[in-house]
Each structure stands twice: as structure tokens, then as C-alpha cells.
């Protein structure tokens, strides 16, 4: 059933998929989204914030489903997906790092670490499946 040839990539994508499902449910559920904001030191979310957090939750859910689809196809059919996800998660990681640098106080590093790990995970998957266009950061 799983057609992706590289086993470590399957493991990495499975873990990322679960993280995506976890964050999707967190952002989609009002109580969990409020608790997330409180734990990360943000202001209590209003109705508008919760609406947009829910939208982000659906994006996470979409990414989880896309990961499953990528695992069910040979690597050759998922090259562009891997590249796109590396770019998206790289930008997300940069933003998370930037936010952490300028923050007055950080209550938890969990989202920051998760964001960076997801980027590294996709980079490893991209490299192992020979989806890399150039040779930059070949050690990943």
C-alpha cells in the first residue's frame, strides 16, 4: 500500500503527519486554541482570531492528507510536493525563529522546535528521495 520506497522517509512523513493532525485539531477546537494561545504567551483569542486559527487548522489537516498521499505514491511522483514543502516549512521556521528572537518572554519553545524539526524532516525526505534540484546543504 505504501509506495514510497525509502523507509526513513515514510517514518519521518508519518511523524510529521501526526504532528499536523495534532495541531489541526488544536487550532480547530475553540478550547484547545485558547489554551494554545495562553501557553504560548499570546493574548486571549477573540472570535476573529479563533476563526483564522481554525483556517490554519484546516491547512494543517490538508498537509496531513497530502503527506499520506505522498506515502502512497512512488517518490518520483512526489518530487514537487517535497520541494514545495521544504520551502514552505523553511519560511515558517525562519518566521518562528524571528518571532522568538524579538519576543520579550517565551513561555514554551515547543512550537518553535516543532516548526524547525518539521523543516529538517522535509529536507531529509527531499534529499533521501533525490528530489533536490541543486547540491546546497547536501549534508541534510
Amino acid at each position: 500500500m505504501i509506495k514510497l520506497e525509502d523507509r526513513p522517509s515514510v517514518i519521518i512523513l508519518s511523524i510529521i503527519t501526526f504532528i499536523a493532525v495534532f495541531y489541526a485539531f488544536m487550532f480547530l477546537t475553540e478550547g484547545a486554541a485558547t489554551a494554545f494561545m495562553e501557553r504560548t504567551g499570546g493574548p486571549a483569542p477573540n472570535e476573529g482570531t479563533l476563526f483564522f486559527m481554525g483556517s490554519v487548522g484546516y491547512i494543517y489537516l490538508g498537509i496531513a492528507i497530502a503527506n499520506v498521499m505522498a506515502m502512497m505514491a512512488p517518490a518520483s511522483q512526489s518530487m514537487v510536493f517535497f520541494r514545495a514543502m521544504v520551502i514552505i516549512t523553511f519560511i515558517a521556521a525562519l518566521r518562528a525563529i524571528g518571532n522568538a528572537i524579538i519576543a520579550d518572554e517565551i513561555l514554551t519553545y515547543a512550537p518553535l522546535i516543532a516548526t524547525i524539526l518539521v523543516y529538517v524532516g522535509y529536507a531529509v525526505v527531499m534529499s533521501r528521495n533525490k528530489a533536490r534540484l541543486g547540491t546546497h546543504f547536501g549534508w541534510l
Binding site: F18, V21, F22, A24, F25, M26, T29, A32, A35, F36, R39
Partner: peptide, 8 residues
Amino acid sequence: AVFLNFAA
């Protein structure tokens, strides 16, 4: 995932 959310 929901269980972990409740825990969080």
C-alpha cells in the same frame, strides 16, 4: 490526537 489536545 484529540486525547493529546485535551492533555495540552
